[in-house]
Design a protein around this nucleic acid. Structure first.
Length: 373
DNA sequence: TACGCGTGGAT
DNA sequence: TATCCAAGCGT
């Protein structure tokens, strides 16, 4: 297949349904390699339970394996079945996701479990269309679940696969570009083997994660070395093309640490947006007076406590400078109990579903108080 | 179509 | 330290 990788490669113009000989060996080489050198002992590989596969695939979206393992084990311990997840409170689910990031994944997973109970009678659906119809499951994740749980012949296209394709077939352009992605989906369909769909999907992921890594790929150990165009042309360093980046903006916010009776006040954030559904510290515009804001918003008379240093948290799309302002609540002028406010001891607060930087602040505070005793 | 959405590891 | 980006999806 000579056209692959050229800017106007043939399969974008006239897709060939029949793979060439070299494309057939692509899959079989990968599968053979996977059986011998791939990963087989990850916690979610000990089962074909579609629910377990599903949870793992959602956690692994944009998240590295090492970060997921502990979360996966605790999550499955607490929510071993679709029914148990569907019946859980959102707070309980978010608590298990706290620190893992991309919290819409947790909200969607929870919602989808309830959908499976209502729409599918508690049985995880088996067709690609029905799987992909669940919130939080796109084409690649649906295919991965179908491949691992049901041995179904659907191609995956995640970051690993894109990297392997971009290098092996010398595909130009950033893989996030719709044109490039469309080209890769067509390629993925042609390369899909006739059998061993689970091992093939795992092989692509293992290749991308352990050999065909972003930097310093281990081409010496690669089963595709003899056919890899990037290797042949010495272009593994420049492929795949990287995403064009813009400078990210910086923002500042003041977080109120309202303390009373050895407890701290947490406020539930709106369901969407940054840290949606998590419990967090109240935020005040940094140009405003924190104590005045505490009175106006909550009816609290407060005494300033010694502040501690600014905490900078970097997101993918902006940088946030957090100015913590500890305040001792002396008196509540008005009742302010709502479902979106709770008072917790520091020990309980760090166990709640809170964003990572808030955890850092509360841990610092707890350490300070311990040191004073 | 481009952007919003977290956190941590690697270089 | 700054930057990239990792088993993507929803809007």
């Amino acid at each position: 297949m000579q056209g692959i990788g050229m800017p106007e490669s043939v399969h974008t113009l006239s897709p060939e349904p029949v793979p060439s000989d070299s494309e057939v060996s692509f899959a079989s080489k990968l599968i053979s390699w996977q059986k011998r050198y791939g990963r087989h002992d990850l916690p979610w590989q000990q089962t074909r339970d579609p629910y377990a596969v599903w949870v793992s695939e959602i956690m692994l979206q944009q998240t590295q394996v090492a970060a997921v393992i502990g979360y996966y084990q605790r999550f499955m311990q607490s929510f071993p079945t679709i029914a148990s997840l569907a019946m859980a409170t959102q707070d309980d689910v978010m608590q298990h996701w706290s620190g893992l990031g991309y919290y819409s994944r947790a909200r969607n997973l929870h919602k989808a479990a309830q959908q499976v109970m209502e729409v599918h009678g508690g049985v995880f659906p088996q067709t690609l269309e029905a799987i992909q119809a669940l919130p939080g499951i796109g084409r690649s994740t649906a295919s991965a679940i179908a491949s691992f749980a049901f041995e179904a012949p659907h191609p995956i296209l995640d970051g690993n696969v894109k990297r392997v394709f971009a290098r092996h077939f010398a595909i130009e352009g950033w893989p996030g570009l719709p044109r490039v992605e469309q080209q890769m989906w067509a390629l993925a369909e042609r390369l899909q083997p006739a059998q061993e769909h689970g091992p093939y999907a795992q092989a692509l992921m293992d290749m991308g994660a352990t050999l065909c890594t972003r930097s310093r790929p281990r081409c010496d150990a690669c089963p595709l070395q003899t056919t890899c165009l990037a290797y042949r042309e010495g272009r593994t360093r420049e492929l795949p093309a990287s995403k064009p980046r813009k400078a990210i903006p910086e923002k500042s916010t003041t977080m109120l640490i309202l303390l009373h009776d050895n407890q701290v006040m947490l406020e539930k954030r709106p369901g969407s947006g940054i840290w949606g559904g998590l419990w967090s510290l109240p935020e005040v515009d940094s140009t405003l007076d924190a104590q005045q804001a505490a009175v106006e918003r909550y009816g609290f008379q407060t005494q300033k406590l010694p502040p501690f240093g600014t905490l900078t948290h970097v997101f993918s799309h902006f940088k946030l400078h957090i100015l913590p302002q500890p305040l001792a609540v002396e008196a509540a002028l008005t009742a302010n109990q709502t479902p979106d406010i709770q008072w917790l001891t520091l020990e309980a607060a760090v166990q709640a579903g809170i964003p990572a930087p808030v955890r850092v602040l509360l841990e610092q505070l707890r350490w300070q108080q311990t040191a004073l005793l």
